[in-house]
Write a protein that binds this DNA or RNA. Structure first.
Lengths: 208, 208
DNA sequence: TGTACATCAGTGAACGCGCGTTCACTGATGTAC
DNA sequence: TGTACATCAGTGAACGCGCGTTCACTGATGTAC
């Protein structure tokens, strides 16, 4: 019979410490915010000494970056799946992508915070920069396909549209989710994003 | 001749420590982010012992709250002035309010960060809640006046419109100012907000 | 104008704390033969 | 299958650090008479 500790540890060797540290980081960030996270406590939560994380990460910063990286990866996948290459219609796929953005932020707040609120420098980490670009690319491709349905003279730059939608989505997450300033508002975050995007797309002439 | 120290201090009594601490907090937050701020360093920057701040604030948290409070006050004033009661036209006044939002965030990043990114609990401080409400109120009144120019059957709820614009503005600040993820974008934050708001208002039928 | 005194706004030393990180070490694992 | 050994992934003690906060204190200020 295995001698598993409460934290899933068997014995001297943890077996899956890297993963356990990522999970501990997520739960700490969710519970106490990005600055509530400490390497020491993550180690404690993984049932391991404070020195152990250094076998897997260069230090505190690198662990957060790993979490942000995985987060962006999942985020990009999720947006991609929601957009589903513009099916069944480009418009509905685009709206679904917005919903997926919000779902991700709500269901994986730890990742979202690590990605956008932890102070991690995205441009200072080329892996991070790439996967951020990938996530952003989903939005941009959606915007391109949307724009292509418009007559050329009324076609907006796709990058701009993608950025607008990204900004609106992020703003909605920050202000109307997770007990932020405007969370007492009478509209849910989902309603806010859905209606905001719809009005915006109507302004582009994509919805009558 | 006064014996002023570099920090503006004259002698045993500082004379204006409360103000000096607020300023130190702002410069620390601007330089090192919300968590880079420590009471000890703020005191040092004000040329005073680490115990001195406790004559003016209950502790670290209260100092940040004071900064956020002053920030929201200035913010509300600024939005109010920009809206200028809907003159010369409600539409142009509303757009000007958006620009004022961005200007404030850019020109007073320390305040903005203390208000929105420091983790300060707005609902946990009634003064803060009130002044936040006041700032939000400027946007909502603008939205009301805008909505009133539409025929009743196409009139959107003003609170919703205000929230949309707030979310877009906040998203633009977070993503496209201050070296954030999308700051390499080919559009400036101002362009992003201006164009985004214009498209959105067109979607409401407020711009042809 | 001068003096006594209360009050205010500082000091500086001390506290306990937890953190990030390093180090020499050691127990477990896997591999070559 | 067994053994020797290299490698890996942990330990635990120690470090220096800066922080937030408290405390008894003291210098400066302002006010009553």
């Amino acid at each position: 019979m295995d001698e598993k500790t409460a934290s899933g540890r068997r014995s001297y060797h943890h077996g899956n410490l890297r993963q356990a540290l990522v999970e501990a980081t997520l739960s700490l960030i969710e519970a106490k915010g990005p600055q509530g996270f400490t390497l020491a406590e993550a180690a404690r939560q993984a049932g391991v000494s404070a020195a152990a994380p250094y076998r897997h990460f260069r230090g505190r910063e690198e662990l957060i970056e790993e979490v942000a990286l995985r987060g962006f990866e999942m985020f990009a996948d999720r947006l991609e799946a929601a957009f589903n290459n513009g099916r069944p219609s480009v418009l509905s796929a685009f709206m679904a992508t917005g919903r997926a953005y919000l779902d991700f932020a709500r269901e994986s707040p730890g990742y979202y915070i690590a990605m956008f609120e932890s102070g991690v420098s995205i441009s200072g980490n080329s892996e991070l920069a790439m996967v951020t670009e990938r996530a952003m690319g989903v939005l941009r491709r959606g915007a391109e396909m949307l724009a292509a349905t418009l007559p050329p003279e009324r076609r907006p730059p796709a990058g701009m549209v993608a950025n607008h939608v990204w900004a609106l989505s992020h703003g909605v997450v920050e202000l109307f989710s997770r007990g932020a300033p405007g969370s007492r508002a009478p509209y849910s975050a989902d309603e806010m994003l859905e209606s905001g995007t719809a009005i915006y797309l109507r302004g582009l002439g994509l919805i009558p």
